[in-house]
């Protein structure tokens, strides 16, 4: 299966992105709960991109690890202001915008791998991976 990429520019794109990731996860025969976890994680991450940075993009790519286990890797990047204090942003209940308290820490709970890189002034990139059970 091929990697997919789409731009995140408006609130509508949040819905489109999560529908796209659900379809990919379903095609890769992820179970229903994991499809929902992935779609929800993408919803949180792309919302952040729209909310904080006004624009960004998402890339979804099927991957395999050394044990031939299949997974789905998702990278959400934006060119926004970046996060000054990542540790603080990853704490439950922290928010600088409207209702994003559970966004990042909640997302981390849903996936197998979670990586966030951010530079103040030049944007944020979040990479998540979920392996098939």
């Amino acid at each position: 299966m091929e990697a997919r990429k789409m731009a995140i520019l408006r609130e509508e794109d949040v819905i489109l992105a999560r529908q796209l990731v659900r379809k990919m996860a379903a095609d890769m025969t992820f179970n229903l709960v994991d499809q929902t976890r992935l779609a929800t994680a993408v919803s949180e991450l792309t919302r952040n991109a729209v909310e904080y940075a006004r624009s960004g993009d998402i890339r979804m790519e099927p991957v395999k690890n050394r044990l031939r286990r299949e997974g789905l890797k998702i990278v959400v990047s934006d060119n926004g202001p970046g996060i000054a204090d990542i540790e603080q942003a990853m704490t439950m209940g922290f928010t600088t915008s409207n209702g994003l308290g559970a966004g990042l820490p909640g997302t981390r709970q849903l996936v197998d791998e979670f990586d966030i890189r951010s530079t103040s002034g030049s944007g944020t990139t979040v990479t998540i991976v979920m392996w098939k059970r």
Partner: peptide, 14 residues
């Protein structure tokens, strides 16, 4: 509420 939605929300601490 769908079961998978409930699981996801609980897991997120929501």
């Amino acid at each position: 509420i769908r079961p998978e939605v409930a699981v996801t929300l609980v897991q997120m601490g929501r």
